[in-house]
Nucleic acid binder design. Structure first.
Lengths: 253, 253
DNA sequence: CGAGGAAAGTTTACACCGTTTACCGTTAAT
DNA sequence: ATTAACGGTAAACGGTGTAAACTTTCCTCG
């Protein structure tokens, strides 16, 4: 029994704390506009750079670590904000979460770039696996499933899908909490991919600044993109209410 | 008269050639998977690094120069491919150009990242201006206008638009060949922004690899996104033909 | 308790990077 | 022919990631 318990020796607690400090310091550097460097992180922690190699194998792993934690942190924020609507109101929660995601991306573009605009080479299976456990991805798939569970919007059956897509729906390599989705309902994953692609698109465009700043400021492009999904997600009857929530959340700034 | 002619002295020709070589060498480095560094470019040109400062003020300018030229080069490729359809068939040309853009982004992700995934800070007016003259942006706006000129799909009137968006349509800060669009038709720019956002979204998602590799390989996500725009662009009557062109172009690999 | 060993640091070193400064031929213009 | 601009060099500075060798600290086990 004893060895089954996670052994929290003094050393391990210290090590855990060091990891936390790494992430905190990195986030601070990022917010200050400095760029994330191994040496800078080490220096600010009162260590020499090579010491950090006791914690990460190389620079890329440092970045991945920070990205993963920032993703978790951000997702927790959106989730908390979404909880101002009841559990049985997933549509409202989804709207809030999307807006908060967007506000986060626009107000903290460097964090966003680290987490979401970080190129992943096809061959890099390690980093790809890391992507699979992305917290935000799981959160959004889960939310989408709940919306479906409540509103039962249509989605393609597995045999309507392109064989490759079918496989990708059944055994997703992307961040997704698919276990919860019944095998025969896995066509839902296609809706997830499509809607995520749309959301990712506007948000990346806005966050990276490849867009008229006035348009970003107004939020209209994002708003229109979200509204496009009201119909496909079976929320037509709720359009007015959800639009209200959307606008309110956007105005919150 | 004489001083109106662009003076092509020997020196200026040489200088021009050097600029071309910088871009060529940088592109080669990029394609080899090395990262773009001022020193590496200089070394491969047989120069020392400081010599490059006679041509660009700093590293960022080197990147911008290369990005701009690669954008031009790529746009020329898509445009040439699109010309296999007649000038009076802008819809087919648009489909071809979009697919070629996507194939370029997926097969040369590093070039894509340089040109389109390069963050631009809000304050950086210089780089923002550079963005405004982006060749690809002009090409796509132009093509969209031609589609509208032929099919007359509906678009919001200026007074239907949010005031901020209206202003952005009238005096665009984004790459766009807007002069050609009559003042009262500037609502078209809204359609441009929205469709560009959608296109940019999938393509970035696929190019950066934040997506199941099998889905990228199949091209289905991109295909579906493009097909969504057949209706809004007034091309419903052409759906079958355009879908054929789309699939053919995607299969071309 | 004390010996042994792993863990966590440091120092030193190397090869890169962007950038500045001072200097020097070559080339073009007056 | 003189002068000035141009296009290059060498040296140097401070920054980066990373490797190897060495030291100190702490935990564990006989």
């Amino acid at each position: 029994m004893a060895q089954l318990r996670v052994p929290v020796t003094r050393r391990e607690r210290q090590r855990e704390a060091t990891y936390d400090e790494i992430v905190a310091v990195a986030a601070a550097l990022l917010d200050e506009g400095a760029d994330l460097s191994l040496r800078a992180v080490a220096a600010r922690m009162g260590m020499t750079a090579p010491a950090l190699y006791r914690y990460v194998a190389n620079y890329q792993q440092l970045v991945d670590l920070v990205a993963f934690e920032l993703d978790r942190e951000a997702t927790a924020e959106w989730a908390e904000a979404a909880e101002r609507f009841a559990e049985d109101d997933p549509a409202a929660r989804l709207v809030v979460a999307c807006v908060r995601f967007r506000q986060w991306a626009v107000s903290k573009p460097r964090r966003f770039a680290l987490v979401f605009a970080n190129p992943i080479a096809e061959e890099d299976t390690e980093r790809r696996e890391l992507l699979t456990v992305s917290t935000s991805g799981h959160y959004f798939t889960d939310l989408l499933w709940e919306v479906w569970d409540r509103y039962r919007f249509p989605f393609p059956t597995l045999d309507e899908l392109d064989p490759v897509i079918r496989e990708a729906c059944l055994d997703p390599l992307i961040p997704a909490k698919a276990e919860r989705i019944a095998h025969e309902d896995r066509g839902l994953m296609w809706i997830y991919m499509r809607s995520w692609s749309a959301l990712y698109g506007v948000v990346t465009l806005e966050s990276t600044g490849h867009c008229d700043p006035r348009v970003i400021e107004s939020g209209q492009l994002f708003r229109a993109t979200l509204l496009d999904w009201i119909g496909p997600l079976g929320l037509e009857a709720e359009r007015q209410r959800l639009t209200g929530i959307l606008d309110e959340e956007l105005a919150r700034r």
